[in-house]
């Protein structure tokens, strides 16, 4: 028997492993999601994050280990016996049911009285601002609308935990950003624990209270967006979240005198003329500008320098719109950052 004594977590995984034949999708995973938090599982495809979500939902069974929901062991429980609901990547709305019927499905299965069902469906549709499409069929809705219906269908059951499997993946960028805000608002309103799977680091940073970064079936780091972005614990995390200049220990030793891997974000790197010598508290690399990338709000400079380093510096375009970049390709420059702005990778 596993010890299911009071756990502070809404969802807890203890030593969970999932194997498909010879491949191990998830290895010896320990993870805890706190009640009411917006928890993201971030990682590249094939990193095991969706498998973990499917095990929490009950679609997959853990090969070994224990999954607890509010302290109850649900490792072997069927999906219909778990107080969790899922929003699927491609929405999984029932194509032959109207929107109202889709949203009412879970209540109907539970034989909820008609009057209550009607009232709750109306409220759920109101919450996602789609009361006017109640009688339409899913294929008559846009992607963003279907997304919101999938959300309403899952939330109407008032689950302990809502699982979201890349729910915004199929939407275009603008709609996606709008939905992110909406999702966050809804989560705050209903106060339900959200477990959110995504491969989009920006999305994870924007939405989450905490993020677990997955790689090859393991969790590399768990922390607040700020923690994982500013203090990556591994080179993978440093590279996966945003752009990062990763400097290996042997090169770092020559720059700073300390043989520890460091990482510094492009927005903390300045580009100055090569002749300008850095201040005492600064680290710098001399090189030539190999590439300029204009991204709208910022311009990225790729400096190829000593020790075979490629340093990316990002400059906010806060100058007059008519001004062009102060540097061009081939310029000899120095990439400089405050030594304490570089994070040490343990």
């Amino acid at each position: 028997m596993v010890d299911t004594a009071a756990t502070p977590y809404a969802v807890e995984l203890r030593g969970v492993t999932k194997r498909f034949g010879d491949t191990t999708a998830v290895a010896e995973l320990d993870l805890g999601v706190k009640p009411g938090e917006f928890f993201s599982m971030l990682g590249p495809s094939g990193s095991g994050k969706t498998t973990v979500l499917r095990m929490i939902a009950g679609f997959e069974e853990a090969t070994t280990g224990t999954i607890l929901l509010d302290g109850d062991d649900v490792t072997r429980a069927a999906p219909f016996d778990r107080a969790v609901n899922t929003v699927f990547q491609d929405y999984a709305l029932f194509p032959h049911m109207t929107i109202a019927q889709n949203v009412a499905y879970g209540l109907k299965v539970r034989k909820t009285p008609k009057a209550e069902t009607q009232q709750r469906v109306a409220a759920a549709l109101e919450q996602v601002r789609l009361a006017h499409v109640a009688d339409r069929l899913p294929h008559q809705l846009s992607g963003g609308q279907r997304q919101r219906i999938a959300l309403a269908r899952a939330l109407i059951l008032r689950p302990r935990v809502l699982l979201l499997d890349e729910p915004l993946g199929a939407l275009d960028k603008q709609l996606r950003e709008q939905m992110q805000i909406e999702l966050k608002q809804i989560q705050r309103d209903v106060g339900i624990t959200f477990v959110f799977v995504t491969h989009d680091q920006e999305e994870a940073l924007t939405l989450s209270d905490r993020i677990a970064v997955f790689n090859q079936g393991r969790v590399e780091q768990v922390g607040t967006p700020r923690e994982v972005y500013e203090f990556p614990q591994t080179s993978f995390v440093a590279g996966f979240l945003g752009i990062s200049n990763f400097i290996a220990p042997e090169v770092a030793e020559r720059l700073t005198g300390e043989s520890r891997a460091i990482t510094v974000r492009p927005e903390r790197v300045r580009v100055v003329p090569a002749e300008v010598s850095p201040a005492a508290h600064e680290t710098s690399v001399v090189g030539t500008i190999a590439e300029l990338v204009y991204t709208g709000p910022a311009t990225r400079y790729i400096v190829e320098g000593e020790h075979g380093l490629r340093i990316i510096a990002e400059r906010h375009n806060d100058h007059a719109p008519t001004d062009t970049a102060p540097w061009s390709r081939g310029d000899r420059v120095r990439a400089v950052w405050a030594t304490e702005h570089a994070a040490v990778v343990p």
Binding site: A78, F80, V84, N85, G106
Partner: peptide, 15 residues
């Protein structure tokens, strides 16, 4: 029939 309709139905409580 997409597999995830079966998943969705089970997820919403249907046996």
């Amino acid at each position: 029939i997409p597999v995830n309709l079966f998943d969705a139905s089970a997820d919403l409580g249907a046996k």
